[in-house]
Amino acid sequence: MNLSVTGEPEALRSGRGEGANVAEKVLGAQGLVKRFGPVTAVDGVSFEIAAGETFGLLGPNGAGKTTTISMVAGLLVPDAGSVTVAGVPMGGSSVEAKRHIGLVPQDLAIYPDLSARANLEYFGRLQGLRGSTLRQRTAEVLELIGLADRAKEPSKKFSGGMKRRLNIGVGLLHRPTLLILDEPTVGVDPQSRNSILESIEALSVEGMAVLYTTHYMEEAERLCDRIAIIDDGRLQAEGTRDQLIELTGGVDTIRLTGSGSLDAGAAAVEQMPAVRRVVRDHGTLVLTVSNAPTAIAPIVNAATGAGLSLADVEISRPDLESVFLHLTGKALRD
């Protein structure tokens, strides 16, 4: 089931608000299927990414994110489906499509016994960088990932976060058209994570298309212009954050906790047009409302007016977690 929320072209255009121009398509993945023996790891996944767009693949462990990415990057041959990068078909004996991709694998992929600089230079050479261009890009990336002063140390001496940053840096060297990041922040402290996310935001501003997988919904919400929710090898839904949230019905929850006349308070707020449902839960009224930020003030007034003395007010807006729950009946994180 693919609950594509909007027609793809609209989604692409609306993605970064680039007006009437149809953004250039950087990646097209069509009907990707991959089986490992009896397991169908990826089952008919299709999506597109435009230049400058950050596209998120959000799903729990084992959803098929890495397998999808491996097919996109040309590392796994799909059992069905096709991939086009910058208009060049991926696969066969041609490595042309790979020139446009920068892959940051989920597991660290750097030489532990080589220095940060040597690692960068090696992978830069594989990308065809040479001479002064290579030296200059290496220096720039070392600066960007904050390892300029540790460039000569073997990477095995780095902290986990530093290794992660080097792992990301390798993918950026050749200024790829499409940067693919597979859960780049796993096992990173909050501060390093924040700096990684900031760098990615900056790259996207520069016009790089980014394919980002994660099982952290906050990261997907913060970074991604469009998000696809993947579970069991299938895309369950795809769209902007707001479009996805609309799938849940777009309702917020307000919790009013207090003492005094709970019943009178309930009766008062129930009359209001924004309130769809009121449930009494011990000393708390749980309200389902259509737009909490605008409805909250009149609701609080009405409740206190009816004799409820409030101790706590809590608003929760639907998030991707609720979307995932809504679509799959499962929690995103187990």
Partner: peptide
């Protein structure tokens, strides 16, 4: 095992 081969083959290298 170190993922170097995957990464090498993700570059334009056969």
């Amino acid at each position: 095992r170190d993922g170097i081969v995957r990464r090498t083959l993700a570059a334009p290298v056969t």
